[in-house]
């Protein structure tokens, strides 16, 4: 009994299909509670007014945008090393979810930046890196769409994902070097355990983060199962024609 058993597409589908509605439901419940809590029952910041409430969307979305790419990177590596189709398809499934998270982070950031910094967009390191991340997602998804053969596409996108990750990190440092920004530092630095946010905001924020994370998990599991089925349809049709 090892985790690799779930790399069998059939086993993956039979295991995840009953779980997905629960994960999805739990994530939606968490999001509803967390967002409602954050929206209605947390006080305004004395400096930022009610715009501080955008944090419950902005921070979790940004977190998941980066983690989604990280998941794609790991899935790509597993595909290249162990040749499990589920892994390649999971990477493919994660990309559209990741790009939506990036978009949410960018949009809420722009709406937040407008009243606080007096501008929708500034070429601040964090903002710029996120825009670049968005471009990476676009390229990755475009490459998947462009290639007919599923295994070829999986190989090429995996290589792109690995090279892209290296360059995304490089870009992050380059952009930091290029401009010091307006954006504040990390609100919840996990590594140091300190945080620059008080408890009344923190509890609903964590609920939203967990909610976004579970939503991502549910969507990726569901979309991976969809990709597995789509691949099976292709294979069956090819067999019938041949």
């Amino acid at each position: 009994m090892s985790i690799w058993e779930y790399a069998n597409p059939k086993k993956f589908i039979t295991t995840t299909t009953p779980i997905v509605p629960w994960v999805l439901g739990l994530s939606i419940a968490l999001l509803v509670v967390g967002l409602t809590w954050g929206f209605f029952f947390t006080p305004d910041d004395f400096r930022q007014g009610s715009t501080v409430k955008i944090i419950y969307l902005h921070v979790p979305a940004a977190l998941m945008a980066i983690n989604a790419w990280f998941v794609m990177l790991i899935a790509s590596l597993i595909w290249l090393v162990r040749r499990h189709h589920v892994s390649a398809l999971a990477a493919r499934a994660a990309a559209p979810v990741g790009i939506v998270m990036t978009l949410i982070a960018l949009i809420t950031g722009a709406i937040w930046g407008q009243p606080m910094w007096g501008t929708w967009w500034a070429w601040d390191p964090r903002l710029t890196s996120f825009l670049i991340l968005f471009l990476f997602y676009l390229g990755y998804m475009a490459l998947w769409e462009a290639i007919e053969d599923s295994d070829t596409a999986a190989d090429l996108t995996s290589v792109l994902c690995i090279v892209g990750s290296v360059f995304a990190v490089l870009s992050r440092y380059a952009v930091n070097f290029w401009n010091q920004g307006l954006h504040q530092g990390t609100t919840v630095p996990v590594a140091t355990g300190e945080r620059s946010i008080s408890d009344i905001f923190f509890v609903p924020l964590v609920m939203c983060m967990v909610g976004f994370g579970l939503l991502f998990l549910a969507l990726v599991l569901m979309r991976t199962a969809t990709e597995i089925r789509a691949r099976r349809i292709k294979a069956l049709e090819a067999r019938m024609r041949g």
């Binding site: 969307l57 949410i104 949009i107 709406i111």
Partner: peptide, 16 residues
């Protein structure tokens, strides 16, 4: 900042 906050929530929830 009512419009800002509401539009941020609106746009994000629509996307989700």
């Amino acid at each position: 900042y009512a419009v800002e906050v509401l539009s941020a929530y609106f746009a994000s929830i629509i996307l989700l």
